[in-house]
Nucleic acid binder design. Sequence first.
DNA 1: CGTCCATTTGATCAGGGTCAAGACGAGTGG
DNA 2: CCACTCGTCTTGACCCTGATCAAATGGACG
Lengths: 234, 234
Amino acid sequence: MASLDRSLIAGLSVFEGIAVADLDRIVGQARSIRIARGQSVFEQEQEARSFFLLLDGHVRVVKSTPAGHEVTVRYIGPGELMGIAGALGRTTYPANALAAADCVVLAWPSHLWPTFATSFPSLSANTYRMVGSRLQDAHTRVIEMSTEQVEQRVANALLKLVKQSGKKIEEGILIDFPISRQDIAEMTGTTLHTVSRLLSAWEDQGLVKSGRQRVVVVEPHRLVVVAEARGSKS
Amino acid sequence: MASLDRSLIAGLSVFEGIAVADLDRIVGQARSIRIARGQSVFEQEQEARSFFLLLDGHVRVVKSTPAGHEVTVRYIGPGELMGIAGALGRTTYPANALAAADCVVLAWPSHLWPTFATSFPSLSANTYRMVGSRLQDAHTRVIEMSTEQVEQRVANALLKLVKQSGKKIEEGILIDFPISRQDIAEMTGTTLHTVSRLLSAWEDQGLVKSGRQRVVVVEPHRLVVVAEARGSKS
DNA sequence: CGTCCATTTGATCAGGGTCAAGACGAGTGG
DNA sequence: CCACTCGTCTTGACCCTGATCAAATGGACG
């Protein structure tokens, strides 16, 4: 099993610049876990015992508000780290992580992070680069929410998902895990009703094809146009 | 001057756990800069030559969209780091930083960061803790934008500013730097008109007192109530 | 004193949330 | 194999929040 894992892992951007021997030492301390669709990887407010690397599947990171709303913070794809609360000086996880599809993850005890960070500077640098890009993403989200209409936000969300997890099929590009109207609504700060209406309209125009927990983008090009419209105001 | 700086700096949370001798070595490599109100500290897309510590004043961090909108990402107060693109693997600044009031900052060349990070692990840990809390803030912003009404968002924004930069005066708590309706609108994703109406309404109710680029929160307690209203939905 | 900018306030209107009802599809148990 | 049930999705009708348009007022500063 370890050998199989190692071959999968060697190419990941998190481990760029790390010597093979070191990689073995790192991976050797992880345990590999299978998580079924719908199960949680970790939960908000829970003590952050471990951090994770997603090897296969997709994870939805959700924050719940006291008022009972749920907001999807991001989707994690294969090769990404998650639950790295420890690296950011937190002792608890900031959100829930739900398996959107069956997943395989590697888990390390959180207390290993400080050692890893000092022993493997590249790992540390790669990780913080990833944190930086997540901070960027979050700010981009804020900007979108502040300046764009719902239609643009939903279009952008689909394009982001396509970029991150798109899989070419004959009809177009499939978002490669089950995703409902409700899920998309939680990513874009709207309601499932509005998402449904938009997808229906786009389907009529031939931009997308969608069904139960399934979205295929047929014409990404034209969807980009939709995503960029309206925002003019100069 | 160095001695003056050092006494100011010793207590800052960024430097917690750092030996005095080390502190000298760190601060010794910075140059101190004065920046007048309205001037920029660094600019979006610019090459990140330096990172900064704000000693005095307030800095508004703004992102501009291609469409010409401006969104205020955050306000930086005394004691906070900014422009730490390098620590996050970026080579350019992600936003504009404008002095909201006259400022004094320390600036280090970006290339010093890697050395600092390895030589002073506490500095690194403190910095990434701060990055973590900014990531949190950004996610909180997204959640607020997704689930709250404008009124709650503006109330929350004021409370945040009060917490961060509030100064007690006889009438209540003053937000201790010039801030316009437009600025508040850019923080909350609304228009200056709506902010003006809200402040007027709150002034009638005795919650706040405000004037030209000046806001005093008279009854924080009741403002908290406003901030938490509406969001019910079980 | 005049000009510029921040602010106020009114009137209008539409984007999209809410309420309501049904249709469709998938899995389950008989 | 079929009926049933539950969850997802669709679609219509209505209405409210807050953006937009428009204009006036009031300080601050040269």
